[in-house]
Simulated scan of single mutants.
Amino acid sequence: MKKGWKLAFLGLLALNGIIVLLLAIGLFSPIQDETLPKVDAQEEAVEFQVKSNKEDLNKVIKMFVEKEKAKSFVDYNVYLRDQVELYGDVAVFSERIDYKLTFEPEALKNGNVVLRQKGIKVGKINLPVSYVLKAARDAYQFPDWVKIMPNDEMIYLSLDKMELKSNLKVRADRIDLKKDDIRFTLQLPVDQD
């Protein structure tokens, strides 16, 4: 009887050691970043200038997020306030841990957007930003035009790759959330037959 108990204890101890080892390997393995996508050459298009605000853009973002969340097993939300805020939770063993990431948006000259990570809260624990972004990238099903770049602590939004109806393309011209000044150019391709 004593020998069986000792074997069961050693087996449980070995299992715990393997779990800790796998977690350590996952946490300390290098993070592979993707390269920034190249911007495709623009075809001839008619352009429309659009000025928006956080309230209206939050409605559009909610529509996109709800569509993407339907394909995923996790729950997350994105809001525009004075910064871009990403809320969600992640399963750790049998518990759900809340997190909040904040980003400063920047409209690039090529019309795409970079979200530079500014703050992070994961439960009551401070974790390295790169690990949290890597976990988000690996856990969530983001659209192809959203690139999570943990090593650079940013998210790259390739608006030129975003698929919209009527082949409409979007270029970000200005994003100033503090002044609620958000400007885009909508490009509608015209056929030259």
Rank of each mutant, 00 (worst) to 15 (best):
M63I: 05
V114P: 00
Y99R: 00
E44Y: 04
E43D: 06
L15Q: 03
K118V: 15
V84C: 10
N112Y: 01
A70L: 12
V113A: 02
R81I: 06
V129Q: 07
L115Y: 05
P30Y: 08
D75N: 08
F103T: 01
N112L: 03
Q42T: 05
E68N: 06
M63D: 10
F48Y: 12
A45T: 02
K59N: 14
L13I: 07
L101A: 13
V132N: 04
G17I: 08
L15P: 00
Q117D: 05
S29V: 06
I18S: 08
E47H: 05
S130L: 03
F103P: 00
L22D: 06
Q49Y: 07
G17Q: 05
V129M: 09
I25H: 05
I25Q: 11
V74K: 11
F28I: 11
E44S: 12
L23Q: 04
K38A: 15
D75S: 10
G88S: 13
I97C: 11
K62P: 00
V84L: 12
T35K: 14
A91Y: 08
V132P: 01
Y87L: 08
K69R: 15
E34G: 13
K71H: 12
V78D: 10
E44V: 07
V132F: 02
D40N: 09
G111F: 02
D56M: 10
S94P: 01
K59A: 15
A135D: 13
F28W: 14
A107S: 08
L12P: 00
I125H: 00
F48D: 06
L36H: 05
P30M: 09
V74M: 11
L15I: 06
A14P: 04
I19H: 01
L108G: 01
L80Q: 02
L15W: 04
E95T: 10
N110T: 07
Q117A: 12
